[in-house]
Simulated scan of single mutants.
Amino acid sequence: MARMPSAERRRQLTEAAIRAMTRDGVAGTTTRSICAEAGVSLSVFHYCFDSKQALLESVIAAITEHSVTVVRQAIQPKTTLRETVRAGFQAYWDHVSAHPGEHMLTYELTQYALRQPGFEHLARRQYERYSDTYAELIEQLCDRMGFALRVPVPSLARYLAAMTDGLTLNHLVLGDGSIAADILDTVTDHVASLAADDARTG
């Protein structure tokens, strides 16, 4: 087996865990099945992760980064703020549509963590990560496009995290993607309206 840096090995095992959990569910995924998916020995797994909590935290961070990466690429400044924001939402939604199993896994991870004594902080950190990520993206967009907001960034970040979380779950349950565009258009208009007038005109 080829040697590789421990960080790269952790990434390999994390991605293998995501595939296994998406296929078999969190409760149905074992350390052995993750190792089989990654093609490594149990000793390699235990060298990289000293606990199941550490693995799940890595999985949650990686899944979040999967969708955030495409959003970051999509929200490069365009002609208007509205176009830029809408492109970011569309990139996220395209990821949901292309990887429904991975997004379903995020909800399973939340429920699993909440039901396991001592794991509750993982669910809390998962949702804090959603808001923190939105805050980061909002601040980057404000800097790049030179506008200020009428509301505090953390408040807007929590609002957007709750909106996309609810819309994603709604889609996973009902399977009707046709309503997403209208909702995302509405939220985009709302976000664009929160830019201060002097920043948009100056």
Rank of each mutant, 00 (worst) to 15 (best):
V40T: 14
E57R: 04
F89N: 11
Y107N: 03
P152W: 01
L105R: 06
D94A: 11
D50W: 02
E136D: 11
V40Y: 15
G101K: 06
E102V: 12
H46I: 05
A135D: 03
E128A: 07
I34G: 05
D132Y: 03
I179Y: 13
L122Y: 01
Y159P: 02
M1C: 13
Y159G: 09
T106D: 01
E136S: 03
L160I: 06
H171L: 13
D198C: 03
C48S: 15
T133P: 01
T133D: 08
Y127F: 02
A98Y: 10
L122I: 08
A196S: 15
W93H: 08
A148T: 08
L167R: 08
V153I: 14
R115Q: 12
L122N: 05
L174V: 07
R150D: 15
T30L: 08
I183D: 06
R200H: 06
R150M: 14
Q90S: 12
V71R: 02
R72C: 08
R86N: 05
Q126M: 03
G118S: 02
I75Y: 05
H99Y: 11
A74M: 13
I138T: 01
L42G: 10
L42A: 11
V151E: 13
A135H: 02
Q140K: 09
A135K: 03
Q73Y: 05
V187H: 01
L13E: 03
A98G: 02
A123K: 00
G88T: 03
S193P: 03
V71D: 01
R124N: 06
R82N: 11
T84D: 07
D94E: 13
A20R: 04
G25W: 10
A17R: 07
L42K: 13
Y47A: 12
V68Q: 14
R72K: 14
A20P: 04
S155C: 05
A135R: 05
I179M: 12
T188I: 07
E83T: 04
K52D: 06
T69L: 09
I63V: 14
S155R: 08
A135F: 00
S41F: 12
F45V: 01
G88R: 02
N170M: 02
D50Q: 10
H121G: 07
A161H: 00
G175A: 14
V85K: 04
D24P: 02
A20Q: 10
P117N: 05
H66F: 10
Q116V: 10
M145F: 06
A162W: 00
I60D: 00
M21Q: 11
D189K: 12
R9V: 13
